[in-house]
């Protein structure tokens, strides 16, 4: 695929990306692409390298080898702020919001709109509150009380807040780590709406999840990790939810099995 002339490079691309903790390769020569306007679900067991991948993409951890390309340009983030400046917004379960701050303050945290000249420069509170409510409604959470503390939001709504914030501040890529674990179906739906709204705006979305059925429901592409390596790189057309579940459950053993079987019966690889 590198031979084909590409007009637009994928927004995020990993080339033989390697991250080591001591002697252990947390990620080993990982190749993957995360194109714009698509939801790529990263699936894998605990310890398969999912969190390390998120850490690298969000700028928390620098990779040791290989390349991370953003819109075709190799980058090496020194801090999460640099990743944000490059248009990569990350949503963690806990880091998304400051629980004691109100919704609108959370929404604009670090980039508050102001008016007035310096000694009197103050927050443009009315505009900020209104905008926060509008943006929340856009990702599927209408009727938010902007003055309520963020802790009054439901778990899924907090994710929505973080996503709405990323959309508003012009992120090009959205990294979502383990967002669905403590949520009920209704919350997952809410969260899914926010993710789909982000996709509709053309963001490249990396969704790290443990739930293959949910992943199959909203994902376009699936990156299966096992032992820090790519165990499968599939699209929605390749698999159905049951297969994805089975692949998840099988994990590393399954990928070795697949490799062995493919070696013995080459026709399997063409499926």
């Amino acid at each position: 695929m590198s031979a084909a002339p590409r007009v637009v490079p994928p927004l995020l691309q990993l080339r033989r990306l390697t991250v080591r903790y001591g002697n252990v390769d947390a990620l080993s020569r990982l190749n993957a692409t995360f194109p714009s306007g698509q939801i790529t679900c990263v699936l894998g067991e605990n310890g398969s390298g999912k969190s390390t991948l998120v850490a690298v993409l969000s700028g928390l951890r620098r990779h040791d080898d290989g390349q991370l390309l953003v819109a075709g340009e190799p980058v090496r983030f020194r801090s999460p702020r640099q990743a944000r400046a490059a248009g990569i917004a990350t949503v963690w379960q806990d880091l998304a919001v400051a629980p004691l701050l109100s919704v609108w303050r959370n929404f604009f945290l670090g980039a508050e709109p102001t008016r007035g000249m310096w000694p009197l420069r103050r927050l443009d509170i009315d505009a900020a509150r209104e905008l926060a409510v509008r943006r929340m409604a856009k990702v599927g959470v209408p009727g938010v009380d902007p003055d309520a503390p963020a802790s009054a939001l439901q778990a899924g709504e907090r994710q929505s807040l973080a996503i709405a914030r990323a959309l508003h501040f012009g992120a090009r890529a959205l990294i979502l780590d383990e967002p669905t674990t403590p949520m009920t179906m209704a919350r997952q739906t809410l969260f899914g709406q926010a993710v789909l709204a982000a996709r509709a705006q053309g963001l490249a979305i990396v969704l790290v999840t443990n739930n293959p059925r949910y992943a199959h429901l909203i994902g376009d592409r699936f990156l299966l990790l096992a032992g820090g390596q790519v165990a499968g790189n599939l699209t929605r057309d390749d698999v159905d939810a049951d297969m994805l579940t089975a692949l998840m459950a099988g994990g590393e053993e399954l990928s070795t099995l697949t490799a062995t079987l493919t070696a013995l019966h080459p026709e399997l690889g063409e499926r």
Binding site: R81, T90, A98, P99, F108, G110, E112, R121, L123
Partner: peptide
């Protein structure tokens, strides 16, 4: 006024309440 009406105040709240998230968001 500083606490409720300025960016500094917002930064104060966030630094105390969610230091890591604040740093993440560029506060």
């Amino acid at each position: 006024w500083m606490l409720w009406r300025t960016r500094f105040g917002n930064a104060v709240f966030a630094s105390g309440g969610a230091r890591r998230a604040a740093r993440e968001l560029g506060v």
